[in-house]
Amino acid sequence: MHLVAHAGAALAALAGSALAAMAFLGPETGVEGTSGALLALVGALVVALGAGLALWRGLRGFWRILLDGFLLIAAALTALAAWFLMQPLLAAAMVLALLAVLVSLVTLVSHPQRRPSR
């Protein structure tokens, strides 16, 4: 399940990255060339890369909780930034990414994976 969730998060964050790039590069987005739009772009890329890393490495246990927690915060802050940049599509994409990461965390908590016994 967490693979699906991370895939969803990566896709949503990739879409967010594209939207953030469009907002930053303009024209006439109201935020083109601003440090706020650049920050949102970096935030969306970080979430996309982090979710991709989780998919690729299939992290478990502590490292997965750490990464998912980080992704949750990054997605939430990027969504907040997008909201204050008046980029509703970007905000929606990052909320989707956030929800996907949340699903990954919930599945981890409800189905904890144990180390294989020796």
């Binding site: 440090s35 920050l39 930034a81 204050f84 940049l85």
Partner: peptide
């Protein structure tokens, strides 16, 4: 209108 700082409204 809307004020802006660093792009944030």
């Amino acid at each position: 209108g809307l004020s802006q700082q660093w792009g944030f409204y």
